[in-house]
Amino acid sequence: MLEIKNLQVKLEDEDKQILKGLDLKVEAGKVHAIMGPNGSGKSTLSYVLSGRDGYEVTEGSATLEGEDILELEPEERAAAGMFLAFQYPVEIPGVGNMTFLRTAVNAQRKARGEEELSASDFLKEVRAKAKTLKIDADMLKRPVNVGFSGGEKKRNEILQMAMLEPKLCILDETDSGLDVDAMKLVAEGVNALRDENRGFLVITHYQRLLDHIKPDVVHILAGGRIVKTGGPELALEVENNGYAGILAEVDA
């Protein structure tokens, strides 16, 4: 599904290398978690994969189902099946949430040469999916993320994911700013989307999200590289001993 080879990335504006040869492979049907201390390059990885400006890939490659995605515009990556659930979902005053969702769904369908969803089919689908995420009609009508609580914003991300049905979902610190109940709700939304054809890359600081979204593989990212890979037990190790122990072990 997603294959990253020797990815090296620096900030465009300053001469600062963030990713220093990252290798990663996410298979369809699997949930991979990436954990790491602050400044290790976790968010950079998610932004580079989704095509945000400000980063320069100096070496390496990233492919989605064999297609080089680093050359694509952000909207082309989305149409190719990539989805990033933002750590800080953006507020867009004046654009209704529903309009936004319908525009996005139909833009992707159009880009893939599929027929656009009719207004009534779209409405039916969005209502059903919103309901399971406890997103009420009012939230759908309001401008995108404007005045949403932290939990509402994250639920709105998952709703978009559910509507867009991507092949690869990247969740960037989706647990930040969430209380336990909100996290459960978001995790349930994510779990409902797990299937054999879809891959997940869950980026997180803490193990607690992984209690709810059970990963198949856990990677530790530090200093711009994956330094250790293991099973779910690796996350527990981080939880109990912090990153220091693992990093010392890697350095040694």
Partner: peptide, 15 residues
């Protein structure tokens, strides 16, 4: 707003 623009594009809406 570049942030908003990127957000929309990341959902598949052309620039």
């Amino acid at each position: 707003d570049e942030e908003g623009l990127f957000y929309l594009r990341s959902r598949g809406v052309p620039k």
